[in-house]
C-alpha cells in the first residue's frame, strides 16, 4: 500500500530525544517508525541517535530498542531475526539504525555477513557524512572536499581527499532483495521505500542522506533545503534496486551548479573552482554508472 503523509499516524514512537536542533538523522528515525510501527525492534549501534535517546532513565524510543556495539549491528539483527523464526514470531520488524561510520567503516563486515545470510531485517544507514557523535571526524562516507576535525583545511589541504564509498552498489553486489537510497528532504520517496522494505522478505538496506547542521555548518532550519540541493545538484541520487533491477527515482536532465550546494555549508567554504571541477567530473561519472544499470538485467 502506498504511504502518504496524510495517512501516516500522528502517534510518535520517537520523542523527547536530545539530538541537535534540526537533526536530519532524527527526521529519518521518526519517519521510519511511523511507517514500520509499534512491533519494531530497533538496534542502535554507537551513533548520534543512540547517544541522544537511551540514557538512563530517559528513553526516547517507544518501541523495543537495544543499544548495541559499534561494529555488530548486522550480526545482532541476524540473531534477532533467527530468534523470531525459531519462536514463530510474526509481524515483527527487526530494524538496524546506524550512522555512516557505523555502516560503511566499522560495521561493514557484519552488515555484509547478515545480507549474505539473507536474514529478514531492515537496515537504515542515516548518513550525516562523518562521525558526528564523536565531534565530526571523517568516515568512509565523507564527501570529497569536506572539512572535518580529522581532515582539516588550510592553504595546502582540501579537507577530505577521497570520494564517498557507494553503499548502494556494495549492497547490489550482494544481490540483496531490496536496497535504496533516499533523503530526508524527499519524504514521500522515503516513506514509500520504507513501506516497500516492510513488505519484502529478507535483508533490506536503505541509505538515507541526513544533513547535520552541527557538522556541516548550516542553520538548523536549512536541513531540508540542503537535502534538496544535494539531489538537485546531482551530488546525491535517489534510486532503488529490486528484483535485480535498478530504478532511478529522480533523474534530472540537468543538474544545478554544485556551488549552490557548497556555498551554504561551512564545511565546504574553502573549496576552489578547481575543486568544483573535480567534484562535477566525479558526479558525472557516478551518474553514468548509475544510468548504465537502467533496463539491464542484473
Amino acid at each position: 500500500m502506498a504511504v502518504s503523509i496524510k495517512n501516516l499516524p500522528d502517534q510518535e514512537l520517537f520523542y523527547g530525544h536530545k539530538a541537535c536542533q534540526g537533526c536530519g538523522g532524527a527526521i529519518v528515525a521518526r519517519l521510519a517508525l511511523k511507517v514500520l510501527g509499534e512491533r519494531t525492534c530497533i538496534v542502535l549501534p554507537a551513533s548520534c541517535i543512540s547517544s541522544v535517546t537511551t540514557i538512563y532513565p530517559q528513553m526516547s524510543f517507544l518501541v523495543n530498542s537495544l543499544t548495541s556495539s559499534f561494529p555488530a549491528t548486522g550480526a545482532v539483527l541476524s540473531g534477532m531475526a533467527a530468534a523470531c523464526k525459531a519462536q514463530g514470531l510474526k509481524d515483527v520488524t527487526v530494524l538496524g539504525f546506524a550512522g555512516d561510520g557505523g555502516t560503511i567503516d566499522i560495521g561493514l563486515q557484519a552488515l555484509s555477513g547478515a545480507v549474505e545470510r539473507g536474514d529478514d531485517f531492515i537496515y537504515i544507514c542515516y548518513d550525516n557524512e562523518a562521525y558526528m557523535n564523536t565531534g565530526v571526524q571523517r568516515s568512509g562516507l565523507t564527501p570529497y572536499g569536506a572539512w572535518t576535525t580529522t581532515t582539516p583545511t588550510n592553504n595546502n589541504a582540501v579537507g577530505e581527499k577521497k570520494f564517498k564509498k557507494n553503499l548502494f552498489e556494495i549492497m547490489m553486489a550482494h544481490r540483496i532483495p531490496y536496497c535504496a537510497t533516499a533523503s530526508v528532504a524527499y519524504p514521500n520517496d522515503l516513506l514509500n521505500k520504507l513501506a516497500k522494505a516492510k513488505e519484502i522478505q529478507g535483508p533490506k538496506v536503505l541509505h538515507v542522506q541526513a544533513p547535520c547542521p552541527t557538522g556541516w555548518g548550516h542553520g538548523p532550519e536549512k536541513t531540508v533545503e540542503i537535502g534538496k540541493l544535494a539531489v538537485r545538484t546531482g551530488l546525491w541520487y535517489l534510486a532503488e534496486y529490486e528484483n535485480g533491477q535498478v530504478t532511478i527515482n529522480t533523474n534530472p536532465k540537468e543538474f544545478k551548479p554544485v556551488k549552490d550546494y557548497f556555498s551554504k555549508q561551512k564545511r565546504f567554504r574553502h573549496l576552489t573552482e578547481e575543486d568544483f571541477r573535480i567534484i562535477e567530473e566525479h558526479r558525472d561519472t557516478e551518474w553514468k554508472i548509475l544510468r548504465n544499470y537502467l533496463g539491464k538485467d542484473e
Binding site: L66, A72, A75, V76, A83, Q87, Q109, A110
Partner: peptide, 21 residues
C-alpha cells in the same frame, strides 16, 4: 547461523538471547 566472525558470533547470540531464545 553461519556468521562471518567471532565478534558477530557473540553479537548474533546476544541478538537471539535478547529475544528470549
Amino acid at each position: 547461523l553461519h556468521v562471518e566472525s567471532e565478534h558477530s558470533a557473540m553479537a548474533a547470540s546476544m541478538g537471539a538471547s535478547l529475544m528470549g531464545s
